[in-house]
Design a protein around this nucleic acid. Structure first.
Length: 490
RNA sequence: GGCCCCGUCGUCUAGCCAGGUCUAGGACAUCAGGUUUUCAUCCUGGUAACACGGGUUCAAAUCCCGUCGGGGUCACCA
């Protein structure tokens, strides 16, 4: 059997779409499973704007997901170049061959005629399609117009008949050629339109399987017609279901949904393996129970036969849950490294880390490990630990003022803290004794203390918070809390 | 509008091809309870779906037809 060659062919529009990321993943998985080749190809013929930045976004996204290409713009390969913008000479050659075979015919119809035609068709409720006027042009008429300096576009000569596609995910689909337009494949200036460039590229790059979004299903028939007309081997196709917006309203678009861009997830820094696991489950499943799978297991288990046909909505909640799951399974050193990275990036601590920062980062990472859903979340989760004059949440303030005795309790307890702080369990024991001695319930102690220390009502276990802050800052905040409580009580 | 695709809990899905074992399974979300100093974790339990209508059959989520609903695509864009 021929070795598998698959490709991911994004257009550098400035962001990598999650749907694109999933397409890349499925292709990558398929290539790895079959011992095939995964090629990355830039479809950058049209959009010229900030191409470099846009290309970089795609490289970065794929790198984040660990979807390494075997051939592509970065690594090169036997079919280089891998950017359509650099393949014009290849296209020119192929186009000449297409013309020679009569697959293309020149069309001199003006845009004005086309829009007029369309208006008429619309008015008569006819399908909007080219009426094939230029098909009947006699060779000498064509020669004359060419000689006169008229510049034609070139259209696909769609023959009589029908095309049957045996789609790997959808099964057999038949389309009558009467329903296919003689689309323009070559611009007046001589460059190929997408549908032609894809065919030339897939052919010259020896692509054996094309896995792409369902939005290409209609294009597929035109492409197959070109392949056949040229006598080229047609690759196997599999059209993946689309990823819909959270409300099920059409496919995800960057404009309407920030979660359409991969960057959205990269910035928050979800666990990459969890993200992959979540992504693969959109439109594919292994069985009725298994959800958590390693990359190696996915490579082994992935199958196009089990890809769904219907579109799927994004369930971000599930990603959050999965990412939290993955993070909880990480060892503390790895979590600490991630936490450190984000705190530095947010400017909460500075590199090189002081001994105090080292200590603090370790304490925060340990305390928040089980609460983390995405690494980037650590910044907002632990902001309280870095500024003594942070604003107090309303509910926290309420807890502080709840009991008139709070002010005194906070001051008294602050006085019991001393350097070095014992471990959390010991501190808790002491605190419980402290409460018992003054006849206060532990709950009445915990809430105002948490409020004073963190300004919040939720967070890590209380004594871990004390450890994170250290004696000095803890005492300082307890006293400040006492003042706040007092001002309310009086 | 033409053509094409799709339709199981709120969401992602298993089951459908090879009809019975499906009083439809799992996960996330949600609700209730337990553990706990808050949150989180963890544990237990609950609510919740075969779009609709015909047909075939002893038997249909599973096969057939129709209806309705959703989506995709119709550029000298990709």
């Amino acid at each position: 059997m021929k070795p598998v060659r698959v490709r991911f062919a994004p257009s550098p529009t400035g962001y990598l779409h999650v749907g694109g990321a999933r397409t890349a993943l499925f292709n990558w998985l398929y290539a790895r499973q079959k011992g095939g080749t995964f090629v990355l190809r830039m479809e950058d013929t049209d959009e010229a704007r900030n191409t470099d930045q846009a290309r970089q976004t795609i490289f970065d996204g794929l790198r984040w997901l660990g979807l390494d290409a075997d051939e592509g713009p970065e690594q090169g390969g036997p079919c280089a170049p891998y950017s359509q913008s650099e393949r014009q000479s290849i296209y020119a050659l192929a186009i000449a061959a297409l013309k020679a075979k009569g697959v293309l015919y020149p069309c001199f119809c003006s845009r004005e005629r086309m829009s007029a035609l369309r208006t008429t068709q619309e008015a008569n409720k006819l399908p909007y399609r080219y009426d094939r006027l230029c098909r009947s042009l006699a060779p000498d008429a064509i020669a004359a117009r060419l000689a006169a300096g008229e510049v034609p576009a070139w259209r696909l000569f769609v023959p009589e008949g029908k095309t049957v596609l045996n789609d790997m995910v959808r099964g057999e689909i038949t389309v009558e050629h009467a329903d296919i337009e003689d689309i323009i494949l070559v611009r007046g200036e001589g460059t190929p339109i997408y549908n032609l460039a894809v065919v030339i590229d897939d052919h010259t790059m020896g692509i054996t399987h094309v896995l792409r979004g369902e939005d290409h299903l209609t294009n597929c028939f035109k492409q197959i017609i070109i392949f056949r007309a040229m006598g080229w081997e047609v690759p196997a196709y599999g059209h993946l279901p689309l990823i819909l917006g959270p409300a099920g309203e059409g496919k995800l678009s960057k404009r309407k949904h920030p979660e359409a861009a991969l960057e959205h997830y990269q910035v928050r820094d979800f666990h990459a393996e969890a993200f992959i696991n979540w992504l693969v489950l959109i439109g594919w499943s292994f069985d009725d129970k298994t959800e958590l799978m390693t990359r190696a297991e996915l490579v082994e288990r992935f199958s196009i036969e089990r890809v769904n046909k219907s579109g799927a909505r994004l369930n971000i909640e599930k990603l959050v849950s999965m990412s939290g799951d993955y993070i909880r399974r990480m060892d503390s050193a790895s979590v600490r490294a991630k936490v450190c990275f984000h705190l530095v990036k947010a400017g909460l601590i500075a590199e090189p880390l002081s001994a105090e920062s080292e200590r603090k980062v370790t304490a925060i990472a340990a305390a928040e490990h089980e609460r983390l859903k995405a690494f980037g979340d650590i910044v907002e989760m632990s902001r309280w630990a870095f500024a003594d004059d942070l604003p107090m949440e309303e509910k926290a303030l309420k807890n502080l003022k709840k009991d008139p005795g709070n002010a005194l309790m906070l001051r008294d307890w602050a006085a019991t803290l001393c350097d070095p702080l014992p471990d959390s369990a010991t501190m808790e024991g002491a605190a419980r004794a402290f409460c018992e001695a003054r006849g206060v319930g532990f709950g009445q102690f915990v809430h105002p203390v948490r409020a004073a220390l963190t300004g919040r009502t939720a967070g890590p276990p209380l004594f871990d918070c004390v450890k994170i802050l250290g004696v000095q800052h803890s005492q300082h905040r307890l006293l400040r809390g006492a003042d706040l409580a007092h001002s309310a009580a009086s």
